[in-house]
């Protein structure tokens, strides 16, 4: 398998607050990496660093052979290789579902409108939202908005998809429909990095689990089932325990 993303010695701080310390990560094509960890451990910040929404103080992020070092501002090329889906959907409220999907492909990649529309409709159909193409975001439920946001990211044909707690703001039933969509993507061979608090979903979708705490990788394993059964570190054990209840 070829290496798609490589992060070396990533260091990030907000003022004097060190958020990520010397993080190293390598993700192969087609791999699904799930990052879990307690609030404030730096999971979301890590994702935001990967597509340049946060400046990093040192380290190198290489995507598909294209390295971006700390202090470099030109990251639009990098961003086109990385798609991101946010917790709060962030569809553009003044544009319809279809317009949301085709805006970037037309403006950024200069694709033909007909071609972008055709692909958008195919993808919307796959997530069961083709009939909503002319709706405005505020006419949709949270789960529907999130599926549109996924389609919008997919239309840019990114090499890697980042998911930042995409179900955290959703009702349980809607969580399911969004996670189903993501599972389908994973099966289709997409490379994904997922930050989530849905442990059963993490177990089902992940090829690799990364447990992050206080800005450091505490545990990293390909043995996903094993991790949830018997984590190696005390910190992970304690964290996983907060998800189960005993009477």
């Amino acid at each position: 398998m070829s290496e798609l993303l490589k992060v070396t010695h990533l260091y990030k701080e907000f003022g004097t607050n060190v958020v990520l310390k010397d993080l190293n990560l390598s993700v192969n094509k087609g791999e699904v990496v799930v990052i879990i960890g307690p609030s404030g451990c730096g999971k979301s910040t890590f994702l935001r660093c990967l597509n340049g929404l946060e400046e990093i103080q040192s380290g190198v992020i290489t995507v598909d052979g294209l390295p971006v070092e700390a202090g470099k501002r030109d990251i639009t090329k990098l961003r086109q290789k990385i798609g991101m889906v946010f917790q709060s959907y962030e569809l553009f409220p003044h544009k319809t579902v279809l317009e949301n999907c085709i805006l970037a492909p037309i403006k950024v990649q200069k694709r033909e409108k007909d071609d972008a529309v055709k692909e958008a409709l195919e993808l919307l159909d796959k997530v069961g939202l083709a009939d909503k193409k002319d709706y405005y975001p505020r006419q949709l439920s949270g789960g529907q908005k999130q599926r549109v946001a996924i389609v919008r990211a997919l239309l840019m044909h990114p090499e890697i998809l980042l998911f930042d707690e995409v179900t955290a703001a959703l009702d349980p039933e809607m969580v399911h429909e969004v996670l189903e969509t993501m599972l389908a993507l994973a099966k289709a061979g997409s490379t994904m990095i997922i930050v989530t608090h849905e442990m059963s979903f993490a177990e089902a979708v992940a090829d690799r689990i990364i447990f992050l705490d206080k800005g450091e990788i505490v545990e990293e394993t390909d043995n996903v089932f094993g991790f949830f059964e018997q984590p190696k570190t005390e910190r992970a054990k304690k964290f996983l325990k907060t998800f189960s209840y005993e009477k």
Binding site: L53, R79, F86, F92, A104, V108, R152, A153
Partner: peptide
């Protein structure tokens, strides 16, 4: 975050 959402789709600052 609306700006970030647009940037993450590869749009430049002006777009």
């Amino acid at each position: 975050i609306q700006t970030e959402s647009a940037l993450s789709l590869g749009m430049n600052d002006f777009q």
